[in-house]
Amino acid sequence: MKAVYHPAQRAHDPKHFLSSGAPQPNPEQPARVDALLGALERRGIAPAAPADRGLGPIARVHTAEYLRFLQTIHARWRRIEGASEEVIPNIHPDRRSASYPLSAVGQAGYHQADTACPISAETWGSAYWSAQTALGAADLVLGGARAAYALCRPPGHHAFADLAGGFCFLNNTAIAADHCLRGGRRPAILDVDLHHGNGTQGIFYARGDVLTVSIHADPARYYPFFWGHAQERGEGPGLGANLNLPIPRGTADAGFLDALERGLERIAAFGPDVLVLALGLDAFEGDPFGGLAVTTPGFARIAEAIGRLGLPLVIVQEGGYLCAELGANLESFLSGLPAG
C-alpha cells in the first residue's frame, strides 16, 4: 500500500461550526491527521509527500472565479471593519445564476453553501495541498500501484465546482477521478462517507464519462438535505451515471454491506478500470456525528467487498472525526484490502 500526505494540511484550523442554530467547536480539526498518520505507522506505511502539479488539474474541476475567491477572500474580508476572524457567510443567493457581487460579503454567500466551511488565512494552502495529495495518489495508481491512500485534510466531497460546504473547499475525490480520466483511464467513484457526496455528484451530474455512486445516511432529515436522494440519476449525457443509495439513520454493518453490494454491481456494469474511493470513516457507530452504526470490524468487511472488484484503487480520505477509534477504523479498512 502506498500513501501520500503533505504537512501543510495541518495549518487549516477552523474554530466555528453552526449546527441547528447553535455555535459549536468545529469538528474538522488538525488532530484528525495525527490519528490517521498513527494508523498508517502501525501498518508500516510511510506516506510520501506529493509533488506540486500546480493549479491546472484543480482548475479542470473548479472554476477560475472560485479558485480566485478561495485565494483572496480572507484578506479582503479582514479589511471590513468589525469582520470576524474567519470568513463565514450571512447571505446566500436564491439561485446559482444570480448576478455576481463585487463585495466580499456577497461573494462569500455565493461561494460558501453553509456555515461549516469557515475560511481563515491558512485555508487555501491546506486545501491546495490536500488536492495535491489526492493527485499524488492518483499518479501512483496511474503508474502501476494497485492501491494508494491519500490522507486528505480538509476533506472535499461537499465542494462543488464553485461552492464550498460541509468542511470542504476543493473536491479531492473529483480532482483525482478527473486526473485518472485524463490519464487514459475509465474511473468510477464510490463514496462511503456518512454524508452524501453532493459536490462530487454535482461536478459529474451532466457527464457520462465518470460514474458516481454514494452510500450515505438518508438526507430527507440529514445533511446535506437537498441532494443524495434515490431519484437523482444524472442529467443529459450523465443520465444513469449517478446512483444514490440512501440508508436509514442507525444502519449497521449488515445494512451498509447490502447497499454496498448494489453499488458494486452498478460499478461493475460501468466497466471501469480504476476506482476512486471517497473514504469516510464517519459512518462509524461512535463517530461524533452518530448517523450510522458501522463497527470497526465492519470497515474491514467493506474493504473486502470493494477489493473483490479487482480494480486499482485511489483512496481519498473524506470524513471521520475525532474519537478514540478513528485510527483503528482506518487500520481495519486497510487490513481488509487485498495484499500487494
Rank of each mutant, 00 (worst) to 15 (best):
H6P: 14
P7M: 13
R10C: 07
F17H: 14
L18G: 01
P27R: 10
Q29H: 13
R32Q: 04
D34S: 14
D34I: 08
G44I: 01
A51H: 10
A51Y: 02
R53P: 06
G56D: 15
G56I: 08
P57C: 11
A59D: 14
A64Q: 04
E65T: 12
Q71F: 06
W77L: 10
S84D: 15
I88Q: 05
I88H: 01
I91E: 15
S97Q: 14
S97P: 03
P101G: 09
G109V: 13
A138C: 14
A159N: 02
D162S: 15
C168G: 00
F169C: 06
N171I: 09
H179Q: 06
C180S: 03
G183F: 07
R186Q: 07
A188K: 02
L190W: 08
L190H: 01
D191I: 01
L194M: 14
L194F: 02
Q201K: 00
G202M: 07
G202E: 15
I203T: 08
Y205G: 06
D209Q: 13
D209A: 11
W227D: 11
R233D: 00
E235D: 13
P237S: 03
P248H: 04
A252P: 12
A252M: 08
F256D: 05
D258Y: 12
R262F: 10
L264H: 05
E265S: 13
R266K: 15
I267D: 03
G271E: 11
P272L: 10
D273Y: 08
V274E: 04
A278Q: 04
L281N: 10
A283T: 15
F284E: 04
A293Y: 06
V294D: 10
T296L: 03
P297W: 04
R301Y: 05
V314C: 02
I315H: 00
E318D: 03
G319V: 03
G320T: 12
C323S: 09
G327W: 06
G327L: 00
L330E: 12
L337H: 00
G340E: 14
